[in-house]
């Protein structure tokens, strides 16, 4: 039961994201980077499958700059066996589809039964790579997966995925791509021997040239959507205390605000 987990390194959920003065991009200096939390669910699920089936390899595939090695090592410390790091400036500045294309090229030559991605990365929040990867590999996918059950013969997988107002149970033939949603599992905390062992595990560096992709289809050159300008939203204002003569009036006002201003209901 060989799994591949696509992993992205992202700024910590609590990190301060500032915009460059010219608005061309965000500033990521002094930011703590972590494994994209949804990808981490994927790592955990792959490790669970390995524990269940034995005789398995869990391979991390990560596209991103040099700093990503830290997150790759974290996944290896959790128990993944090896990693491939697509680290090349030529791959930077792309969109989800150039990323998925590069990942697909890399993964094509690998042995796998199942691929895990996060349902989205918490930096660009695009939620596209997993689906596009499946399309490029010409295998099916299931999004927003919260439960995974691989059949004993390793031929198919039954998943529960989140849909509006409930869950959908799907059966997919293997290999396939599953994108992990919160609730799938609770990722483990790497043990210290795991951390030490991870330092010695194989991380294969891959350059753009190795992928044999047309230069026009990768990185910034291949991107079909581009960030034109970034803005910081207005700072969170102090709480709006809903005033009113009576509890009834306050309640009515609040309900209206939630609906019309906050658009939360």
């Amino acid at each position: 039961m060989n799994s591949i987990v696509c992993l992205k390194q992202v700024p910590d959920t609590e990190a301060q994201i500032r915009v460059k003065p010219d608005g061309s991009d965000v500033l990521l200096q002094d930011v703590k980077f972590i494994i994209n939390p949804y990808d981490e669910y994927g790592v955990e699920e792959a490790l669970k499958l390995k524990e269940k089936f034995g005789q398995s390899t869990v391979t991390i595939v990560c596209l991103g700059p040099e700093r990503c090695i830290e997150s790759i090592r974290t996944a290896l410390a959790m128990g993944a066996d090896k990693a491939v790091h697509l680290d090349d400036p030529a791959l930077d500045g792309g969109d989800a589809f150039t990323t998925a294309r590069a990942l697909a090229e890399q993964i094509k030559g690998m042995e796998y039964d199942i691929i895990f991605c996060g349902k989205q990365a918490i930096d660009d929040d695009a939620a596209q790579v997993g689906v596009a990867l499946a399309e490029y590999l010409n295998i099916p996918h299931a999004n927003l997966v919260i439960k995974v059950e691989v059949s004993a013969d390793k031929k198919k997988v039954t998943v529960n995925r989140q849909i509006v107002g409930g869950e959908e149970v799907l059966e997919l033939p293997l290999p396939c791509v599953l994108t992990a949603q919160k609730g799938l599992n609770e990722p483990r905390y790497a043990s210290l021997p795991g951390i030490m062992k991870a330092k010695k595990k194989e991380v294969k560096p891959v350059k753009a040239a190795d992928l044999k992709l047309d230069a026009a289809r990768i990185g910034a050159a291949g991107a079909k959507s581009k960030v034109l300008k970034c803005y910081s939203p207005p700072p969170r204002t102090a709480a709006q205390i809903v005033a009113g003569e009576s509890p009834e009036e306050k309640a009515a006002k609040l309900a209206k605000l939630l609906r019309e201003e906050a658009k939360a209901i």
């Binding site: 910590d12 959920t13 609590e14 990190a15 301060q16 703590k32 972590i34």
Partner: peptide, 10 residues
Amino acid sequence: NNSNPWGIGR
């Protein structure tokens, strides 16, 4: 990640 137990941005 944030050098405090509550995880508030450092």
